[in-house]
Design a protein around this nucleic acid. Structure first.
Lengths: 244, 244
DNA sequence: AATCTATTGTCTCAATTTGTGACAATATTA
DNA sequence: TAATATTGTCACAAATTGAGACAATAGATT
């Protein structure tokens, strides 16, 4: 559920630490490596547990800002494209033993001790779209890894994090034609083929090339550049960028 | 933000009352009266404040169940169609003076006293679709009214509740062709015209009659009944119901 | 330098869906 | 009995999508 912004070892209540009790967020951070859609997953040292990068909300910061802060700490990026997709509040997701295991193995908790992180949390799910190549993800205090995984080769995730990924993906699919998804996953300039591959990776199905081109160009959201992409042994495709 | 399930007068902390601190929900309850889309709004005695019906989550109930409990108390209905649409966590929505005013005017608070309801809340927005004619909404302890208002004739609402209504409506519009919206807003049997009016009320625009019929019937989700709707001086329309 | 290969940009035509109007059918009112 | 308003259905035009064809061309091969 969390790894970053853990309060110091001997703070026991949320209030003492400056965070809001019972509220967490988890983020599904999508990146596109040119052919596959991937997401960032944190691993916890000494346990075999994996989780979505998450965190908590400070008393004097907005929910959105809390998520941005967490993303900045892990990726160094500001102005990330963020979309909230669902809030998870079932009773089944309250398994304090899992959090306890992580905190014990990291020395953030002594056996038998109480801690506000062991209380029940309702978690708000966000997804982010980032440019895969601009980022070297950083692990943090509690986790010892933060790595890209293809969306259909994820390790077993703790709690309801698989459900979160599924719901994030469904939302992203529903938004693919409403929001400029490609603008956030692709580099500044890209070929029509690359853009089509983003669609295919997100939707998980093949798209007809000619129909796709006709429809995308019909939206008039792309600027065509003179410079072309060279290097392959076939006709060079145009490069495009998003208008504005 | 809330009117129902207020803990007794002298309980000061969320924990003492059995609720989760900092977490609320607000519900946009849609009903269709035959021509207009309406929502339920609570009014608070002695103040001129209006709000969406909302409440809090008990320590041992899920978020969804908390919302269902609140809906049951106000409408008497079970198995209501519910959809979560957004979670609101800005700093601007934290205005304890507003809640204080309501609680003072209802005797739930003494001047200068602390109370967990005066702390900051993050609120999860849900919308519900209910059959307008089956319900006589009930006000509760803190509010003195709970009434239907047409969506474009709402009274001024407290905090960010107008934004909530707007977002609920946008989500409903986006879902209109994905989920069986009509099945929850219409009576068991209805005419094609009534169904069209639901669409027009939600979308806020006129729909072409022939195209609408062709598309809806093409979905094969409706059963046509022999019995026809009589009483008007023109050809009697068929009655339909949703399959299964 | 000529040819081959893989992919691109564009076009065409068929198939499908949607927009638009027309018209006969009919339950009630006049 | 005729008039009125709305319904169910059809017909045709317009727009969109599906499916394939084909010339153009950057680099690889010879």
């Amino acid at each position: 559920m969390s790894e970053k912004h853990i309060p110091s070892k001997y703070v026991k209540t949320a209030k003492e630490s400056g965070f809001l009790a019972h509220i967490a967020y988890d983020s599904v951070i999508f990146g596109f490596d040119g052919s596959t859609l991937k997401i960032l997953i944190s691993g916890y040292s000494n346990t075999k547990l994996f989780a979505l990068p998450g965190g908590f909300v400070k008393e004097n910061e907005s929910l959105d800002d809390a998520v941005r802060r967490g993303l900045y700490d892990r990726t160094g990026l500001e102005n990330i494209y963020l979309e909230q997709f669902h809030t998870f509040g079932s009773l089944e997701r309250y398994i304090p033993a899992t959090i306890e295991k992580i905190m014990l193995s990291n020395g953030h908790l002594k056996a038998g001790e109480n801690h506000w992180l062991l209380e029940r949390f309702i978690s708000v799910g966000y997804y982010a779209l980032i440019n895969f190549n601009e980022v070297k993800p950083k692990p943090d205090e509690l986790s010892d890894s933060c790595e890209w995984y293809p969306i259909n080769e994820l390790p077993p995730l703790m709690l309801d994090h698989h459900e979160m990924v599924q719901k994030a993906l469904e939302t992203l699919r529903g938004n693919i034609n409403k929001k400029l998804v490609g603008a956030n996953l692709l580099p500044e300039k890209f070929t029509m083929k690359q853009y089509q591959q983003v669609y295919e990776a997100i939707l998980g199905e093949n798209i007809r090339r000619t129909t796709f081109q006709r429809q995308i160009l019909g939206l008039e959201i792309l600027k065509r550049h003179e410079k072309q992409f060279l290097g392959k042994s076939h006709k060079a495709p145009f490069l495009y960028s998003f208008i504005k």
